[in-house]
């Protein structure tokens, strides 16, 4: 019995010693990133992927603090704020990776392959059809200002969600910050994150949400009375790149993970999870046929005005 116990301990010790670990800092929702990691681990036995998951804002602030203390923990960063990747690339903190995947659009290998888009997500409008009742569905962003939608609309907090920061920046550039003031007067409320907002929308606490599209499709599968609407003046294509930090302790493994995300099986899983795969030959998510009519996120504008935009928004909605 004792021998068996010792042998088990030794086996466990050896297994742990052989296991290599990479750390991923991400804003990708847990229910999506976990199956992706499982798929990766099945193809790469012996590699463990640790995840720190939170909203983009929180992930970036944490990594920033770690970089300041010269003790960064992440090997890979995967968040919805391209401007932060630009900042990291400019400081030479990202490791370039050569794009070799067939069918991968080169425009999504940013800054010579320092960070990559691996799937596409859009900010659109989602509605709770039950809550909306007989009201007509909004067709464009400006429809949300109509008095009939008063107190029905919600959006995530741009301090926390990178996608919401895209909304804030893109609308501010396109319509002016006054658009948010009008929305606020029409009763727009702010929730912390996309996942929280989509749950509350599904439960009928909201009728309409300015929100990322993929999670809504997942809730529809679970039976929620929801619908995704891509506005006719263009959904916002939210950049959510992934990059390898030059401080990574396991750059080769990190690169393997990044390349895996572009593999056919990973792209197919993205489609299953409701995302639009970045490789054209991959399957499309259910309910999305053809191209999504979209406008790019105003990354340059956000980079130049981030603090002002967030401060204005926080003051308007009394966020701290």
């Amino acid at each position: 019995m004792r021998r068996f116990f010792l042998a088990s301990l030794v086996t466990l010790g050896l297994a742990l010693a052989q296991q290599q670990t990479i750390t991923l800092y991400t804003s990708e929702v847990l229910t999506n990133v976990n199956p992706m990691i499982e798929l990766f681990k099945r193809a790469n036995p012996g590699i463990n992927v640790q995840v720190f998951r939170s909203g983009t804002g929180e992930v970036i602030t944490r990594l920033r603090a770690e970089l300041e203390a010269n003790n960064p923990q992440a090997d890979l960063l995967w968040v919805a704020d391209e401007t932060f990747f630009r900042e990291l690339a400019a400081a030479n903190r990202l490791r370039p990776v050569r794009a070799t995947t067939t069918g991968f659009p080169v425009k999504f290998a940013y800054q010579g392959g320092r960070y990559y888009e691996v799937r596409l997500l859009y900010n659109g409008i989602a509605v709770n059809t039950r809550k909306l009742g007989n009201l007509p569905e909004p067709r464009s962003w400006r429809d949300l200002l109509k008095p009939e939608y008063r107190d029905l609309v919600g959006m995530p907090n741009p301090n926390f969600s990178g996608a919401a920061l895209s909304t804030l920046g893109t609308f501010s550039q396109r319509f002016g910050f006054g658009f948010f003031e009008q929305l606020q007067r029409n009763g727009l409320k702010v929730e912390q994150s996309n996942p929280i907002l989509q749950q509350k929308l599904a439960e009928g606490q909201y009728g309409i949400a300015i929100i990322t599209d993929f999670g809504i499709r997942d809730l529809i599968r679970q039976g929620a009375p929801l619908k995704v609407i891509y506005p006719r003046d263009g959904a916002i294509l939210v950049p959510t790149p992934i990059g390898i930090l030059s401080s990574s302790r396991n750059p080769a493994l990190a690169e393997r993970f990044l390349r895996f995300l572009l593999s056919p099986e990973a792209q197919a899983l993205f489609a299953q999870q409701g995302y639009v795969p970045v490789i054209a030959s991959a399957p499309r998510p259910a309910g999305v046929s053809g191209e999504v009519l979209s406008v790019p996120s105003a990354a340059d504008y956000i980079q130049a005005n981030r603090q002002t935009l967030l401060t204005q928004f926080n003051t308007l909605f009394n966020l701290r």
Partner: peptide, 26 residues
């Protein structure tokens, strides 16, 4: 509290610690 934007000092300290809008979170 946080979902309703009702902050107390401990939750505010947490929010500032992870806030990208803060010039010096710590």
């Amino acid at each position: 509290g946080l979902p309703a934007q009702v902050y107390t000092l401990p939750t505010l300290a947490y929010a500032r610690l992870f806030s990208p809008a803060s010039p010096d979170p710590l």
